Simulated scan of single mutants.
Amino acid sequence: MDLRQLEYFVAVAEERNFTRAAQRVHISQSGVSAQIRRLEKELGAELFDRSARSAELTAAGKAALEHARDVLAAAGAVGQAVGEITGLLRGSLSVGMVIGCTVTPLFDALAGFHRAHPGVELSLREDNSDRLVPDVRSGALDMALIGTESEPEDLNSLTILSEPLVAAVPTGHELSGRVSLEDLAAHPVICMPPGTGLRAVFDRACAERGVDPVIALQASAAGAIADLALRGLGVAVLSESMAAAFPELTALPITDATGPALLAITWRPGANVAAREMISHCRKAFRLPSAG
């Protein structure tokens, strides 16, 4: 038997379907079936009950499954260990990034990582923070840059930015100086949609003060929110640095929205070597202290 046969066996067992397993391992269904037949012949037992509608494990298949997983995990660990020793990383690194937030240092970190480890396949996905965090937990993503009101307790995190919310208005708007959430609620509000860290901070502040603002318009990009506010369609709620990027707007401190909006990189405890290397590049790109 070889590792390829064990990989196909595990894929069919987990997918309970030869077609889906073939798609997962990127070969034809007939190729998967042929390799499984060879494995069964070598073991002297059928691993799947092919009379059922789905690919159900036989007693022999159930007995073999965990051992096959252990062998594949051990083979992966051998490659990982060699990669760590030689510095010639292989494999993949999947990174998430909160939607609507162009963060140049993250791109610098990705570029630096790629130059140092060209053998690693990089992928980058934009999404709302409330979907990125569960994907980091599950392993669908190795790490993610998220907007949040607090760092996830069960994940490792590196805070990039912590700053207050502001109300951003065009010149001549009746709001001025320092404003309260109640002042803000007297006007249509333009902000990010639910699922984003900035919106979570704003919603929590309003709930704590018993304020129920009218969310007139929502947009995922700070530029779109600012543009709508400049056209007089409402008061923009942004973080301090977001608002600073639009000098045509005046940023007004919100006196009773005291919880900061955080921008943080998050990853699982015990992350693979590629993720750990990427974290090091992020520390350099964001000019953060090295891990002690």
Rank of each mutant, 00 (worst) to 15 (best):
G270T: 03
P260M: 02
W267Y: 15
G259Q: 11
I265T: 06
L262Y: 00
S280A: 15
I265V: 14
W267G: 00
F286P: 11
A274D: 05
R287E: 15
M278D: 04
A285P: 11
I265L: 15
A261N: 15
R276G: 07
G259A: 14
N272M: 05
R276Q: 15
A285K: 05
H281F: 14
L263E: 02
A291V: 12
R276V: 07
N272D: 15
M278C: 06
W267S: 01
I265K: 00
T266V: 15
A264K: 00
L262F: 04
F286L: 10
I265N: 00
A275V: 10
G270A: 03
R287W: 08
A261V: 08
A274W: 00
L262E: 00
H281Y: 14
R287G: 13
V273M: 06
E277C: 12
A271M: 03
E277R: 11
T266D: 03
A261K: 04
A274L: 03
I279G: 00
A264C: 05
L263W: 00
A271L: 01
R283T: 12
G270C: 05
T266K: 01
I265S: 01
I265P: 00
A261P: 08
P260L: 01
A274Y: 01
L263D: 00
L263A: 04
A275P: 06
G259K: 05
G259F: 04
A271V: 06
R283P: 10
E277T: 07
C282L: 13
R283V: 12
S280P: 06
P289T: 12
G259E: 14
G270K: 02
A291I: 09
W267Q: 01
P260F: 01
A271C: 08
A285M: 07
P260D: 02
T266R: 00
L263V: 10
H281M: 08
